[in-house]
Design a protein around this nucleic acid. Structure first.
Lengths: 335, 335
DNA sequence: TTGTAATATGGTAAGCGTACCAGGAAAACG
DNA sequence: CGTTTTCCTGGTACGCTTACCATATTACAA
């Protein structure tokens, strides 16, 4: 473990000169530079980035807090984040909260203490405090995917409200009037925005919103399965089902299959979040697809841009459009 | 940004005493502790972990280098790693190499310079040098998923040879004699081990190995698609297809569909790596499933165990079994 | 010739905790 | 009562690099 002093001694210069060579900063004579580089090579010297970061107050590390990397939507977001970070010479610390505020806060504290240069946060709930905490430590935050009302931050997300509106309109145009909505948790903006879009479409079409058909659960397969079971007990049975995310959709599909119902013949199904094209041989679900990779990438680029600014931030909110992809699960128009 | 000195001043003690309170080390009088804790709370003090790490030579951070987090197999491994790390109070820096040795080496250098306490490496190629480099910096490594012949390291992987052997035997038992093998890159142990298991099964059954039916490509959808195209041009056409990983299997399925062939009626298909149960409504592929989560978890636990040992390592190699999951894609016995 | 800028290099301290060593007071022990 | 042990606290230096300030030489214009 050679240090910069060892290199300096060997090259017959001061440590600071070695530092200049390494960082290509300030003036260094060509011959001196060569001597230093030779010494570095001889000793196999590698700078201790911790010491550098302590002094320079830059770690070239970002924190990414999301709910669960196992969900392919987040996987794709994470890949976008890592790619953008890597391109800029940054590393990413990955954190899964599983929607737990407690876990989220633990991670936020650790990240701040590790002096990450910035945080990409998929907030477990809509509270502003976690964001304020990070900002109070002079660490910039970009809020990803979900809204936090009244927060002063940069944010990158998709237009859940509009995506849900479009999907619901699609179902309405096919003749459906009883559409069940299986959403995620209350207090999570994407879950609520999707319900809002659904309601707007119904109201606009003059269809009464039956609150008994609107479910708030978890963004999980189990919850999708359970909500579908409850939904099927309603009479008359809804003719279409809106799944609030990809896991809910899969849970719903399983529940429908277990109930002996065919999709779309017996009941139509649409969902939020597409599965990556690479994972599916024969895509079947009609969905509102979100540009997950782009979200990750743009959020990271926004965060990195903040780091190189001195001016106080004019917070930006980037809302990416969703794309309705019509496939078989939404079925034909009802006769 | 209060420092430990600020806290010390406010509590009327020396910085070291504050340190003792924070780390629960040494003796601290109860009243002193209370005063210090009050000062910490008043100032909103958070220790600077960089400074601590510089002194203590511990970062509580691990590096995870894999090929591509987008592949659900790696996603699951990563989740296992992060869970195990998190349980032990460690964070994980995520790195994607896309099978590039250049990227891999970049990441290894950065991780070492960032003083990570250990590295989990899915090696892009079977060379020992990258591992030796990390070890030369006194950073322990666990090699994940792939073998590196002649390396002195801990390793956790699945038994690819045996999994391939079992799968091939399954096909043989169904009456197949012309079985095409679509594998990953030469120089990647999992690709080669799977070919080896395939050969062993054939030899054991007295079936001649037709080298024209063994393809080495990439572990990607595109490669699977392309290899399948080539394979279909062979006469007589193979009656079964062995896909070397999940992406190759999906590429193969698409190519077969595009060629108007039905699976398993026209051609049987088996693959390596299962898709996570949560992602598939109706599993179809017969596969050798690897315990991806367990691999990640055990590799991490092994790495963490190394960190708390002073004795020179007796390197361990953990080989987890694969599970053959028979589904429809392998078809019935040929008549 | 003098002033100014560009080039080149170094000293010192700071960034923030903790390892190590020391020392004093109180409690326990023979 | 002297000695040992336990309890409690602090000083100093170190981990390694870089920010900041200072100095010195050369080059070139005024």
């Amino acid at each position: 473990m050679a240090t910069i002093r060892d290199v300096a001694k060997r090259a017959g210069v001061a440590p600071i000169t070695v530092s200049r060579v390494i960082n290509n900063s300030g003036y260094v004579n060509e011959q001196t530079r060569a001597r230093v580089e030779a010494a570095i090579a001889d000793l196999g010297y590698l700078p201790n980035v911790l010491a550098r970061s302590l002094r320079s107050r830059r770690t070239n590390t970002l924190g990414l807090i999301l709910t669960d990397i196992s969900n392919p939507f987040w996987t794709t977001v994470a890949r976008g984040v890592e790619d953008a970070a890597s391109d800029a010479g940054f590393n990413v610390i990955l954190c899964n909260t599983d929607e737990s505020v407690v876990e989220q806060d633990k991670y936020l504290h650790v990240l701040v203490q590790k002096q990450v240069d910035g945080v990409l946060l998929v907030p477990a709930r809509s509270a502003v405090e976690p964001v304020k905490f990070v900002q109070s430590q002079n660490t910039p935050v970009v809020v990803l995917d979900r809204r936090i009302p009244n927060s002063q931050t940069d944010a990158v997300r998709c237009d859940s409200e509009d995506g849900a509106y479009q999907l619901t309109r699609l179902l309405l145009s096919l003749g459906h009037r009883r559409i069940a909505m299986l959403s995620g948790p209350r207090g999570v903006s994407t879950a609520e925005d999707r319900v809002a879009g659904y309601r707007r479409a119904l109201l606009e079409a003059g269809v009464e919103v039956d609150t008994a058909l609107v479910y708030y659960g978890e963004f999980s397969l189990e919850s999708g399965y359970a909500m579908t079971g409850q939904m099927l007990a309603r009479t008359p049975r809804p003719s279409a089902l809106f799944a609030g995310n990809n896991f809910i959709a899969i849970g719903a599909l399983r529940a429908l299959r277990d109930a002996g119902l065919r999709v779309p013949e017996d009941i139509a199904l649409v969902g939020f979040d597409d599965l990556p094209a690479d994972l599916v041989v024969d895509p079947f679900l009609t969905v509102a697809a979100q540009p997950a990779y782009e979200m990750g990438r743009q959020a990271t680029e926004l965060l990195l841009a903040r780091l190189s600014e001195e001016a106080p931030a004019v917070y930006q909110e980037i809302v990416l459009p969703t794309t309705i992809v019509v496939r078989r699960s939404s079925g034909q128009a009802l006769e």
